[in-house]
């Protein structure tokens, strides 16, 4: 019944069933080819973009100063180079930390990132508190939360003394 109308819309000479199969095949072929090309291009592009997630830069001990440079019971800002910083990183290839000399050979290093949202905490030496400029987080000298929104204390970097030098182990930025 429909042959008349279907014939009028199809190229002459093509049987309606053959044509349907052919069209279905070409449809799937084209879509499959498109999908294949997208995958072919997509894998390296997405892989390139998310590569930093899987790159584990080596963790190295960085010297931040001689032991005698730091007074007992004082907290001082130190900085060190990130490991495998890109050559064009410039200033951004450094990280700061707060170094607390608790005893003659006893050092603690805190990340400068507030555990709330990552703003840089500053050490108020006379108040003996770390304070965050963003949302008012406060920490005691042992790194524990004294006030405000931080969910936990300041992150510690591994620290050691070696041949009279204080060394900090480079670490990923703390993400709460």
């Amino acid at each position: 019944m429909n042959t008349n109308s279907s014939q009028s819309t199809r190229p002459a000479g093509a049987g309606s069933r053959d044509c349907g199969d052919r069209r279905r095949f070409l449809n799937w072929l084209s879509l499959a080819l498109g999908g294949f090309a997208s995958t072919l291009l997509g894998v390296p592009i997405v892989g390139f973009l998310i590569a930093p997630l899987f790159r584990q830069p080596p963790r190295l001990w960085r010297q931040v100063g001689a032991v005698e440079d730091f007074k007992v019971n004082e907290i001082t800002e130190v900085s060190f180079d990130d490991t495998s910083a890109l050559p064009w990183a410039g200033l951004s290839g450094k990280t700061a930390a707060w170094l607390y000399r608790q005893g003659p050979q006893d050092f603690v290093a805190y990340s400068a990132n507030c555990s709330h949202l990552g703003c840089p905490v500053r050490w108020e030496a006379q108040a003996r508190l770390f304070m965050c400029p963003c949302h008012g987080g406060v920490y005691y000298q042992n790194g524990s939360v004294a006030a405000g929104p931080p969910p936990r204390g300041l992150t510690r970097y591994p620290v050691r003394t070696q041949n009279g030098q204080v060394e900090i182990l480079t670490s990923p930025a703390p993400i709460t």
């Binding site: 998310i50 830069p57 951004s92």
Partner: peptide, 26 residues
């Protein structure tokens, strides 16, 4: 990055995606 880090399960990955690494860098 810290805000992205609060997402369950994939937070750390998102944070490192934003930083394009472990820390702010090149």
């Amino acid at each position: 990055a810290e805000q992205a880090g609060r997402v369950p399960f994939v937070g750390k990955m998102l944070a490192h995606f934003i930083l394009a690494g472990n820390t702010v860098g090149g």
